[in-house]
Simulated assay, not measured.
Amino acid sequence: MMRRQRSSPILKKAVRRASCMNSIDPNLDVGNGLTLPAFSKLIDTMQTKKNAYNSALANLDKLYREMLETERELGDMAEHMLMGVGVKYGRSSVEYGMAGGVPKNQRRKRLRGESPTSSSQPPLFVASVDSNGNGNKQAMTS
């Protein structure tokens, strides 16, 4: 996902306005320090900052993609390391458990109809339907 580059409608409007004012007088001074050269300098500063910001976003996107790729590699290597410990010491060994695996002889056996995510605790909320079809949630207490 690339981040959107920043554009500035105010900057575009200022550039147009400066070019129009330049046709009036290249050294236009309307008083109180408002001069066309100062206006042009501020426009250039804004363009420089916008370009720097957009470049930083592009670099950030590149770093993010590199980080995700390294994270995938790390996950794969961690899995392979655990599998290697299982091959070397056995999947029922203490070393396998120390490496982060669940030893084969300590795995919980599932019953036939039981799903891997089911638990022995009752649900916190049970939906009931009244006679007009509206669902009402009622809390169950244990």
Rank of each mutant, 00 (worst) to 15 (best):
G135V: 13
H80D: 13
R110E: 00
R16T: 15
A56L: 08
H80G: 07
R91H: 10
T35G: 00
R72I: 14
Y53S: 08
M140C: 11
L60N: 10
V85L: 02
P123I: 00
V94N: 09
L36K: 01
G31Y: 09
S40P: 04
S40K: 12
A127R: 10
E95F: 02
P122M: 01
A56P: 01
I10S: 13
S55G: 07
V94K: 09
K41Y: 02
N59D: 13
Q121L: 03
K12F: 11
R110T: 04
G135D: 14
V129D: 12
D76Y: 08
L36F: 03
K50T: 11
C20A: 12
K137L: 11
L82P: 02
E114C: 06
K109R: 15
V15T: 03
E114Q: 06
R108W: 10
A78T: 09
D44H: 03
K49G: 07
P9W: 00
L60T: 08
P122Y: 00
L124I: 06
N27K: 13
L82N: 02
E71P: 04
N51W: 08
C20H: 13
C20D: 11
R110D: 02
K49W: 08
A38T: 09
S115E: 02
M98L: 14
S92R: 06
T35N: 01
G97W: 02
A38C: 03
P116F: 09
K62L: 04
E79H: 11
E69P: 05
A58Q: 10
Y64C: 03
L11M: 01
R16N: 14
R17D: 15
S40C: 11
N134L: 10
M98I: 14
D25V: 00
L60P: 11
R17I: 09
P123R: 02
R3N: 13
V102P: 01
S19K: 08
F125K: 09
N134A: 10
L34Y: 15
M21Y: 10
Q121R: 14
